[in-house]
Design a protein around this nucleic acid. Sequence first.
DNA 1: GAACAACGTTCGTGTAGCGCGAACAATAAT
DNA 2: ATTATTGTTCGCGCTACACGAACGTTGTTC
Lengths: 278, 278
Amino acid sequence: MLVAEQKEGSGVRAADTVLAALEAVAWAREPIGVTQIAQAIGATKSAVFRHLQTLMERGYLTQDADSNRFRLGPKAFLIGHLAPPAWDVARILERPMRDLRDATGLATVLSTPSPRGALVVATFPGTHAIEIGVRPGSELALHASAQGKIFLAFGPPSLTDQVLAVSRQAFTDRTITNAAALREELSRVRMRGYAVAPEEALLGINALATPLRDHRDAVVGAVALVGSIQHLAPQPAPGLIDAVSRLAEEGSRLLGHGVTDRSPPGKRQNRPQDGTAS
Amino acid sequence: MLVAEQKEGSGVRAADTVLAALEAVAWAREPIGVTQIAQAIGATKSAVFRHLQTLMERGYLTQDADSNRFRLGPKAFLIGHLAPPAWDVARILERPMRDLRDATGLATVLSTPSPRGALVVATFPGTHAIEIGVRPGSELALHASAQGKIFLAFGPPSLTDQVLAVSRQAFTDRTITNAAALREELSRVRMRGYAVAPEEALLGINALATPLRDHRDAVVGAVALVGSIQHLAPQPAPGLIDAVSRLAEEGSRLLGHGVTDRSPPGKRQNRPQDGTAS
DNA sequence: GAACAACGTTCGTGTAGCGCGAACAATAAT
DNA sequence: ATTATTGTTCGCGCTACACGAACGTTGTTC
């Protein structure tokens, strides 16, 4: 074992497992049993069982009296509704996102940055016969999704370094795994102001994403269109780019971007970085 | 094995700690630091620190870039909004609860049963000069709160046994700690249909609660008025009782109570169990 | 109705991973 | 500068966790 290979090194194992179990229940749209949870998160039944007890004791889960299956409980609900309204972009953007979906027929996705990837917060599936969508809760790889590249391109450079430090998984043969190539792609994204990821996460699928900025100009999310490469070419139609950009701008405006922007320049969190010294 | 004596024995310590840390952040209405969290949940700084890393890795928390303080993250938001809409009673009852508060001037509280107590889901503080309220997230003792007694009186008998198995804490000298007296009080609650808890949790404060029932006739929550014993006597004014009862009935109706109530009697969740062999 | 399968739950064991306390670093306050 | 308080890291010892297998129960199949 030469390489440190820090995958999960800093965290607490039992704590990570309990959160994984919680998520397994959350992502399932119907009550789910111990065995399914165990194999979903790759742990043994007995371990999961004890963790589920912990979650029940604290009210995050409830166990159906006669089926012995688990569903989310009141504490989970409460925690989510105590979360800062900043994440309520989902609600704010619900209408315009649906409109964009209806106008383009493509799946519309709202993501937010998370250490493991671009967390899908809200989605509106496409309207074509072959429906393409993304499940809320999914975490899209930062290097292989349009949203992820947005976060890498406009987010803190430490995030990029983190991603470049470990080897990137190749989901398809179009996935950009080379570090230099990825850096180049990111500077291209910065120039264009939008990101695409043709067949980088899944063959036949492309995505087009633009950044959401808050009142402090920090990128806090991304809106994206996802669809077949038939409807969403590697070089998307200008109309689509405009539409997504407008949606992102509207969302940013609703987040306070551009208003009361009186923070003295240079006082932002834009630590000098390297200015893309590449 | 007569008594199970399960205080915290069955859970996983690290898992419990990480959830406690998550809650500490959630209940704080502003970003909070490691030290405060540690002493809030009674753990050492270093342990809490590692747990916070786990929570960040999974996106439940975000760390403010320059203050190093923690706030709830997107995953917490998402989990809460994936919770079954049953807990959305809070939203459904928002209007009527506010109306009741305005009509009575007393704090209106919505609670739901949880193993540790009556979990406060939503509150509207009273309107008197001396404001009395309950913080969302608080877990009121089952034996010393009006809401808790509702859950004991109308919930599964196993819950009552559980509470009676351990010694009850006396918050004031009015708190009912004696097992027989509590059983008696519960049957009184069942007869009346409402519960009060004059000065049982806090001197000078009383509460008046009625049960919320879902479509299967199970008690899934309680609405309560909380206020000074000046405004809320140990034997509350009939008008107040009526008002709370009406609110609870309206809430129950919104939860589907009374419609398609065709479940055969005796088929409910009253499994014989061992009948309290102790 | 017996045999089977699958599930939730319990139990014992070895070890690694956790909690602890103290040291270190970085900031803020005096 | 000095002090105090914070966030972060380190090393150690022991606990309390993950594992695997067994148990009890439910539901399914022929």
